[in-house]
């Protein structure tokens, strides 16, 4: 008679249990990492309705672009105000196109203090950033995205991107690409007041 493939034989010939457990654990862990990565990539940028409390940040500010005398700005400190968070870079041509409009809109809201504009400089060098801000006469608080943590939190897809946060820190509108006019910015902000 031929030798049957009995359970005893399978155990004798199979891999030791600890190797099987290790291999399966590693495979499952890798699949989870890949799945999470793909899921995150598929999500795209932060959408309207997102609570920014989940990805609060503190950003250092460029010299001369402070916020109420402070050299850094925290998103939680801005609760109670409408926040216009603009991601930009000096090497980004569309950012240059909307620079004047953003400054004009900031000047429009600056006196009442209920709206705050914040510029987040993405993957840039400080000398060029300061030159850019001076060239376009930008005066609202601006700082570098240190470690690209803020842009990663908002999962930006490019620059310029602008996020309009209401007084509770909830994203109410997302502008991908440049604004066409100052009135467009004012229209969006007024809808949140």
């Amino acid at each position: 008679m031929t030798e049957e493939n009995t359970p005893e034989n399978s155990v004798r010939k199979g891999m030791p249990l600890w190797i099987q457990i290790t291999v399966w654990s590693v495979m499952i862990a890798l699949l989870v990492v890949v799945f999470v990565g793909l899921q995150r990539a598929r999500e795209g940028n932060v959408q309207a309705g997102a609570e920014t409390a989940n990805f609060d940040f503190t950003m250092p500010l460029f010299e001369g672009y402070d916020y109420e005398g402070a050299q850094e700005i925290s998103l939680t400190d801005l609760r109670g105000k409408i926040v216009v968070l603009n991601f930009w870079a000096t090497w980004c041509v569309p950012c240059q196109q909307e620079a004047d409009e953003l400054e004009e809109a900031w000047q429009h809201y600056k006196p009442d203090g209920e709206v705050i504009f914040v510029g987040v400089d993405y993957v840039d060098t400080e000398p060029e950033a300061l030159a850019y801000l001076a060239e376009y006469g930008i005066t609202y608080p601006n700082g570098p995205d240190m470690g690209t943590k803020i842009s990663q939190a908002f999962r930006i897809q490019g620059v310029p991107e602008t996020y309009f946060l209401d007084r509770n820190g909830v994203v109410q509108h997302v502008q991908l690409g440049p604004f066409s006019s100052t009135q467009q910015i004012i229209g969006i902000v007024d809808s949140l007041r």
Partner: peptide, 14 residues
């Protein structure tokens, strides 16, 4: 050869 990379290289030089 992008503008961003040129700026980075200039920063390294600096």
């Amino acid at each position: 050869e992008t503008q961003a990379c040129k700026q980075w290289r200039e920063l390294i030089r600096l």
